[in-house]
Simulated scan of single mutants.
Amino acid sequence: MEQNYEPKNYTDAAIHDYKMGLGTFSEKMPELAHHYNEFTEACFKEGVLDKKQKQLIALGVSVYSQDEYCIVYHTKGCIDQGATEQEILEACGVTAAFGGGAAMSQAVTLVQSCISDFKDMQH
């Protein structure tokens, strides 16, 4: 099946690449991957902050740190948790206030492209 994989767009390809890489890493380092996954699952569980708020924070950190795979992944997480395009872009605006031009460039390119790609993939 992997041989026939044809990404729908850049965002789809990035998520696929991340999942494939994570699978390979998990095979080679199962205990470390297990503990990392447990930790991140605990961090993203509903608490005082809801899951949408946590995804918006994660997206902001991803944009600030220029981590393209995390930007794609957490843009999807925001959408999956019901964040609107306006909420996502507002979170990116706050990030740009701290991260300057580098953060803004990710917000106006990759984040907006991901939002568009995810909308297209839903239809």
Rank of each mutant, 00 (worst) to 15 (best):
P30W: 04
E85I: 02
H16C: 08
T95P: 08
V108G: 00
Q3G: 08
S26M: 02
Q55I: 07
A103M: 03
L56N: 04
E68Y: 03
E38R: 05
S113Q: 15
K8E: 15
D120Q: 15
L32G: 10
M1N: 04
F98M: 15
C70N: 10
F25T: 10
N37E: 13
A103L: 01
Q81D: 11
N9T: 12
L59M: 00
L32W: 13
T24H: 13
G77Y: 00
V48W: 14
E2V: 01
Q66W: 00
A107K: 13
F98W: 06
T95H: 09
Q122H: 09
E2Y: 07
M104R: 05
Y69N: 14
I79Y: 10
K45D: 13
E46V: 04
K119C: 02
M20L: 15
V108Y: 10
S113K: 15
Q81L: 12
Y5L: 10
E31I: 04
V108D: 13
C78I: 03
N9E: 05
Y36N: 14
T95F: 01
Q55M: 13
F44I: 12
D67L: 08
G23D: 07
K28H: 07
E31C: 07
M104Q: 02
L49S: 14
K19F: 01
K52E: 08
V72W: 04
E27S: 13
I57C: 11
V63E: 09
E85V: 14
V108H: 08
V111P: 05
E46T: 10
C114D: 03
N4F: 05
V48R: 15
L22V: 08
V111M: 09
T95I: 00
K52S: 06
Q55V: 00
E31M: 05
K28Y: 10
Q55A: 14
E90L: 00
S26G: 12
Q86N: 08
A102E: 03
P7S: 13
A96V: 05
Q81W: 11
D67Y: 03
T11Q: 13
F118C: 13
H34G: 06
T40P: 05
D117L: 01
V61C: 03
T109P: 09
Q55R: 07
V108M: 06
L110P: 03
L49W: 11
T95A: 08
T75W: 07
T75M: 12
P7L: 09
E41A: 15
K76D: 12
S26K: 06
N4D: 06
F25Y: 07
V108F: 02
G21Q: 08
E41W: 14
S116K: 15
Q53A: 05
L110Q: 12
H16A: 05
V63M: 09
A96G: 04
A97P: 04
S116L: 07
G100P: 09
Q81A: 15
A33Y: 10
Q66F: 00
G60F: 02
